[in-house]
């Protein structure tokens, strides 16, 4: 039994065993190897404390090592041409909650190599949500859309401005401004002689805080309400939510549309100011943190 197995056994069995045992087996894991490993420790008397520390360290270590190994494994699969394997590994990482821009971007690459333009566009868009200023993500998204014939929807000027920072950056900015505003408020109250200096600064910080909160709210809306969706395959937008309704226009895979409402299994979408109906199965909502 190696050390990691021993630690895992400790974690599994918990700390409810007696701290001191006269047997030649480890009091925690019940193995002789564990007993030897424990006796080899100079601070054997601090076993309960060390057990808890080891468990905490092991948790941290495994949590960091596992996604990295999986990420590297996915990269090797991609390099060897096993794009399906790479996509599966990246998808596993996302299902585990590691939806970083890098993982989403690489998953998009794997999907693109597999010829799934819609899925690639979806992953690139998710990566873009997490890192909107990343030039590689923007370029790959544009390229994927060009390959499928889709067009990147044009955002209004204010939205483009809010997209210059990611959700996390807006939140961090808001947090800093919140503390700065409080500090300026304290100084303004306690140091009235310098009020002419502090008060304009406080107003400027307050205005900046409102803008930062607006940016954070913009991204939160995209992540929670999920008004954006990506069409997964070439689809026909219909005039009505009926299977035999008239086709309004065609949308190539990868098209990014705006969801307006949902009626049963149908979504009323809007692409380039042309509202129409799509089956719900034809598109997937863009969310930076997809459900596992």
């Amino acid at each position: 039994m190696n050390v990691r197995t021993h630690i895992n056994a400790l974690l599994r069995r918990g700390a409810d065993l007696p701290a001191v045992s006269l047997s030649n087996r480890c009091a925690r894991c019940g193995t002789r190897a564990g007993r030897r490993a424990a006796q080899a420790t100079p601070l054997h008397g601090l076993r309960p404390f060390l057990t808890v520390c080891a468990a905490l360290l092991a948790t941290t270590f495994l949590a960091g090592a596992q996604p990295n190994e999986l990420f590297q494994k996915a990269g090797r699969a991609y390099d060897s041409g096993d794009f399906a394997g790479a996509a599966a590994a990246y998808s596993t990482l996302i299902q585990q909650g590691y939806s970083t821009p890098q993982v989403c971007f690489n998953l998009g690459n794997a999907e693109f190599r597999l010829g799934r333009g819609g899925a690639a566009a979806l992953d690139y868009r998710r990566a873009w949500h997490l890192a909107p200023r990343d030039a590689d993500i923007a370029a790959n998204l544009q390229f994927a859309l060009e390959q499928t014939g889709a067009v990147l929807p044009a955002a209004p000027l204010w939205a483009r401005w809010l997209q210059s920072l990611s959700a996390g950056e807006w939140r961090a900015t808001a947090l800093v401004l919140f503390w700065l505003l409080a500090a300026l408020g304290c100084l303004d109250l306690l140091w009235p002689a310098r009020r002419k200096l502090f008060r304009p600064l406080a107003f400027a910080a307050f205005a900046a805080l409102l803008i930062a909160l607006g940016g954070a709210a913009y991204w939160l809306d995209l992540q929670v309400r999920q008004p954006e969706a990506v069409v997964m395959q070439d689809s026909k937008v219909l005039f009505a939510p009926l299977p035999n309704a008239t086709e309004y226009y065609a949308l190539p895979a990868g098209s990014i549309v705006r969801i307006e409402t949902q009626e049963g299994a149908w979504l009323r979408i809007n692409a380039a100011n042309r509202p129409g109906w799509l089956p719900q199965t034809n598109c997937i909502a863009v969310c930076a943190v997809p459900a596992g």
Partner: peptide, 16 residues
């Protein structure tokens, strides 16, 4: 398309 991105420096599980 641009090539794969390297692994992030730190791994964090994200929430909404």
């Amino acid at each position: 398309i641009a090539y794969l991105k390297p692994a992030p420096a730190e791994w964090h599980q994200r929430s909404v």
